[in-house]
Design a protein around this nucleic acid. Structure first.
Lengths: 225, 225
DNA sequence: GTCTATAATGAGATAGAC
DNA sequence: GTCTATCTCATTATAGAC
C-alpha cells in the first residue's frame, strides 16, 4: 500500500482530507443538479452553489463540464454493475443445474440492487436514476451508455434468452428495454403515480417485478419451459 | 367566412399563405430541435437554421423560447387526446353491456393511436415522443403535463380500474405509468433494441400490448373478471 | 488546494429598415 | 411579414493571488 502511494507521488501528492471531501461534495452536488434539468440546464455555478464551494473549484476537481458529467455517471454505474452481476451469480448458484433460472429471478437480480439502494433512503440514487434515463434515451450520450450500461445489459439479455430459447433475440431485447423503462419510471415517477391515484402512494419492487415477469412470459412465448 | 375575416381585421390581418407556411415550418423545426437535446440544448438559432428562416422570425412567430416549446407540445397533444378518446368510445361501443372491456382493448385504444401515427412514416411523431418523455419526467414542465396529458390519463386509469375493481387505485396508476413508459421506450429506443440484439430490428405495437396486458393482469389481480 | 477576477464566447430578445 | 443588426446578459474556462 505504502509502496503504491510512493509510486503515485511521482505524479502528484496524496490528496488531503479536505481535498477529498471537496471532491466528493462536488460530485454529489453535480449529480443532483444534472438530475434536475439535464446537462444543459445545469451550470457550473449551480453546482458550485449546491456544493458550497467557489466556482473555480468545480472546474479544478471536475475538469470540463462534460468530464464532470461523465464522472458522475461512471461512479455509480460501476457499483451497480458489480452488484447486479453478483446477484445474477447468486441466482444461478441457487438454481439446480439443467433446470434453468426463471424470468422473475433474473429480473430481480437486475432490478433489485437498484431499487434497494433507492429505497434505502438514497436520494442520490433517485437523482442518478433520472440521469440514467437521460443518458439512455439521448443519442448524444450513446458513448457513455455503451461504455457503462451495455455490458451488463447484454449479459442480462443473454440470460433471459436462455430462459426462452425459442424467442427471437430482438424480442428478448425488446422486453429488456420495456423492463428497464418501467424500472426507471418507478424510480422517477412516483409523484405521478400519486397524482393519478388521488395522492395515494404507490409502486414497489415486487409490483414491478410481477408486472415485468408476466409481460416477459406473455411476449416471449406463452409457456415457460 | 368573409364576414369572419372582417371581424378578425379589427385585431389583425388574415395571415398570408407565406406567413402560415413560415409558422408551420418553424413549429416543425422547433419540434425536431427540442427533441434532439431537450429545451436547454436547443437554441433559437438552431431552430431558425433548421427551419431555413432568419433568427428574428422565430421569435416573431413563436414568441419566447418557452412559449414556443409550450406550443409545440400542445399542438400534437390535442390531436392525440381526441384520437384516444374516440378509440376508447369505440371500444366501449363494441363491448356488450355488462360484460366490461378488457385490459388489452383499453391499452390498444390508448397506445394504438400514437404508435399508428409514428409508424405511418411520422418522423415528427417520433420526435414528439421524445418531447413527451421529457415533459412527463421533468417536474419543470409539470404544468404542461397536467394541462395536456393528465385529463386523458385520468380517464384511462378510471376505465382500467373498472376492469379490475378489486385493485387499489395506486396499483392501477402504477400500471398506467409502466405502460406509458414502455410505449415511449418502444418509440424512442428502437435503436437500442437493435443494438442489444445484434442489429435485428424489433418492437411493434402488438408485442408491446401483449407485454403490458399480461403485466397489468398479473399486477392488478391475477384473475380477470 | 483554495479562491477571486476576468476574458472570451454565445445566448435570447428586440428595434427598426424594407 | 420579413430580415438585419445589435443590446444585454449569463455562461465556461482559466490566469494568478493566497
Amino acid at each position: 500500500m505504502s509502496i503504491e502511494e510512493d509510486k503515485q507521488k511521482q505524479r502528484q501528492r496524496a490528496p488531503s482530507q479536505r481535498a477529498l471531501e471537496s471532491r466528493a461534495r462536488i460530485l454529489d452536488a453535480a449529480e443532483r443538479v444534472f438530475a434536475r434539468g439535464g446537462f444543459d440546464a445545469a451550470t457550473m455555478r449551480d453546482i458550485a452553489a449546491e456544493a458550497g464551494v467557489p466556482v473555480g473549484l468545480v472546474s479544478h476537481h471536475g475538469g470540463t463540464k462534460e468530464a464532470l458529467f461523465a464522472e458522475v455517471v461512471a461512479r455509480r454505474a460501476d457499483e451497480l454493475s458489480t452488484a447486479r452481476l453478483q446477484a445474477l451469480a447468486e441466482v444461478q448458484a441457487a438454481t439446480e443445474p439443467g433446470a434453468g433460472a426463471d424470468a422473475a429471478a433474473l429480473l430481480r437480480a437486475f432490478i433489485g440492487p437498484y431499487v434497494a439502494r433507492a429505497e434505502a433512503g438514497g436520494a442520490q440514487w433517485l437523482a442518478y436514476a433520472r440521469l440514467v434515463a437521460m443518458v439512455s434515451s439521448d443519442p448524444r450520450w450513446q458513448g457513455l451508455a455503451q461504455q457503462h450500461f451495455d455490458p451488463t445489459a447484454r449479459r442480462f439479455v443473454v440470460e433471459l434468452g436462455r430462459v426462452y430459447p425459442q424467442a427471437e433475440p430482438a424480442a428478448v431485447a425488446e422486453c429488456y428495454v420495456y423492463a428497464i423503462s418501467a424500472m426507471l419510471a418507478l424510480l422517477t415517477s412516483r409523484w405521478r403515480i400519486a397524482a393519478l391515484s388521488g395522492g395515494q402512494e404507490g409502486g414497489d419492487l415486487e409490483g414491478l417485478i410481477a408486472f415485468c415477469a408476466a409481460g416477459v412470459a406473455a411476449r416471449l412465448g406463452g409457456v415457460q419451459r
